[in-house]
């Protein structure tokens, strides 16, 4: 029906402010264009926010904060780094970052996937939550900083620590602090000091379910970034689960 579907729209973002740029993206999406290619992006915010019809958006340059905030269904590919607040309260869709990303990635994300090839900053995956068939997944190729998965309530967080220098910890401090749902898998070991009070450490590999869960998403990840799944999965993972779904149940007097 719609002849635009296969059409690619290129938008040069140079000298466009975010509102102008996003208007162009939304208009293209509303016309039914499925592939939108942005070039010379530098710092423009909210790309993918409020965009209908779930187009694929390819970004060359550095997209600004809140990339894909409240996003519903779009598929975003960033050629290099992303900034802060990627996938903020994201509902569904996919964001692929071929470089590294900043802080607060995937805050309160409820569905979809965020795949980062490099490292991520502080407070990644805070308050992620799953609901029914919505299951948020974040896979980080490199390392993460402090407060990873803080208040995590659902979904899946995987940190691979690829190309990690031995002095750099794979995750920072307070990992999973306040966690009360979801699963975190870290490729390698974590020290007790790196973990929040509310998480418990498990060994995942004996559990078939864990392996198939990791495999399901990690294979896609590896395919995207041309990585060898088998060699990555060989290393032992550490599995972090909340100690309780009621971490603060005992906080109050009667």
């Amino acid at each position: 029906m719609n002849r635009n579907i296969s059409k690619l729209q290129r938008i040069d973002a140079r000298d466009l402010n975010y509102r102008e740029l996003n208007r162009l993206i939304k208009d293209a999406a509303n016309e039914g264009i499925k592939n939108i290619h942005l070039t010379n992006v530098n710092g423009q915010r909210y790309i993918g926010t409020g965009v209908n019809n779930a187009p694929k958006i390819n970004i060359n340059g550095v997209p600004g904060n809140d990339l894909g905030a409240f996003m519903d269904g779009c598929s975003i590919n960033v050629s290099g780094n992303g900034e802060d607040g990627i996938g903020n309260t994201m509902n569904s869709g996919r964001i692929v970052i071929n470089g590294s990303a900043g802080d607060i990635l995937g805050y309160s994300m409820r569905g979809g996937e965020i795949f980062v090839k490099g490292n991520v900053g502080y407070r990644v995956g805070i308050h992620m939550k799953s609901y029914k068939n919505m299951y948020p997944v974040i896979i980080i190729g490199g390392c993460a900083r402090d407060f990873l998965g803080e208040y995590m309530a659902g979904g899946l967080l995987i940190v691979l620590g690829l190309n990690r220098k031995s002095k750099n910890p794979i995750v920072g401090s307070y990992c999973g602090t306040g966690m009360h749902g979801g699963k975190i898998f870290i490729r390698g070991n974590v020290e007790p000091w790196q973990l929040g009070k509310e998480v418990r450490v498990y060994e995942p590999n004996k559990n078939k379910d864990d392996f198939s869960l990791i495999e399901k998403y990690l294979r896609q990840y590896c395919e995207l970034f041309s990585l060898d799944f088998d060699s990555i999965i060989k290393t032992n993972f550490t599995k972090l689960l909340p100690g309780s779904s009621r971490p603060y149940g005992k906080l109050y007097a009667y």
Partner: peptide, 21 residues
């Protein structure tokens, strides 16, 4: 504060460094 501010004036392809606390 943001990477874009650096990329605007630095054409190097070098990796950005994300500060720690």
């Amino acid at each position: 504060t943001e990477e874009c501010a650096i990329r605007e004036v630095c054409k190097s392809k070098k990796e950005i460094y994300y500060s720690k606390s």
